[in-house]
Nucleic acid binder design. Structure first.
Ligand code: FES
Ligand code: FES
Lengths: 141, 141
DNA sequence: GAATACTCTACTAAAGTTGTCAAGTATTCG
DNA sequence: CGAATACTTGACAACTTTAGTAGAGTATTC
């Protein structure tokens, strides 16, 4: 249960590769593709979205590629996933675009809301920098 | 992102109704259907699974219905969802039935693993009793 | 034996996921 | 200039999952 789509997963892994080139080495899409085993065509979709949302910028021509718009420590995993897949919404009732009519009498509303907040809280504390440094292995984050 | 299926949601809400009858008042499926706005036919599928997994038992005939097999405080939301939807598996790599070949070099493995553990940890500390008492509103659980 | 209530399997329409493909634009460098 | 590199965009399709419906059957009570 609670599966994350491949788009989100690949997005994080692609951002990790781009982060390694920060701040002055643009990473071409082909290199990301090879290092992370994801097709170039699929990555194009993902990186396009991330670029339109302002997380990365692109440089065309030979020597070009993608570069982060902020430093790795300031880009959280949560922010990447939100751009690609929208906010965490355990149920449609918690989705800002959907909402719920029977929320008043519903015993589970608070349950899913709390869970969602726990998840976002976690994803927002982990950054690309943590991924590069392997912080997750070392402390209790 | 990270949507829970309706099966899981309805399952928890159905268990909540059954819990209210614990320990000696069987709740018929029709009553659950009315109180939670879920069709009888769909609930049948869900309750059947929960019965086969041993969370509830059923009593046939007039006056019959469903009864919890354990007291509400001993049934966690996590245990309900696991029976209906399998264990939390943010990515296929974390799914016991799938697994991953490139886990060794993968920077995100620990990330998804940690997130999954956080989620299960939360879901396992909240019980049907908490839902009935509204504990979620009161403390920091 | 009629009414109540659970049991089980099959099936399907809609939605979402996971990509591929093709044609185009911009930049660099010799 | 012109060739190579690299990003841009939109369409599209196979596949899987979800969210239910339907219907025929079994068990129990009174
Ligand atoms: S049904 Fe919408 S909050 Fe529970
Ligand atoms: S690809 Fe399987 S763990 Fe990252």
């Amino acid at each position: 249960m609670l599966r994350l789509s491949t788009k989100g997963q690949y997005g994080v892994r692609a951002m990790f590769e781009i982060a390694k080139g920060y701040p002055d080495k643009p990473i071409p899409i082909k290199e990301i593709s090879e290092r992370q085993d994801v097709s170039v065509a699929y990555l194009e979709q993902i990186l396009n979205k991330l670029r339109n949302r302002g997380l990365i910028k692109s440089i065309k021509g030979p020597g070009g590629g993608y570069v982060l718009n902020k430093k790795p420590a300031n880009i959280s995993i949560g922010s990447i996933l939100r751009e690609l897949e929208g906010p965490v919404a355990i149920t449609s009732c918690l989705d800002p675009e959907e909402g719920c009519i029977r929320v008043d009498g519903c015993v589970t509303y608070m349950l899913w809301k709390s869970l969602g907040e726990k998840i976002e809280g976690f994803l927002d504390t982990v950054s690309l920098y943590d991924l590069i440094e392997g912080t997750l292995y070392k402390n209790s984050k």
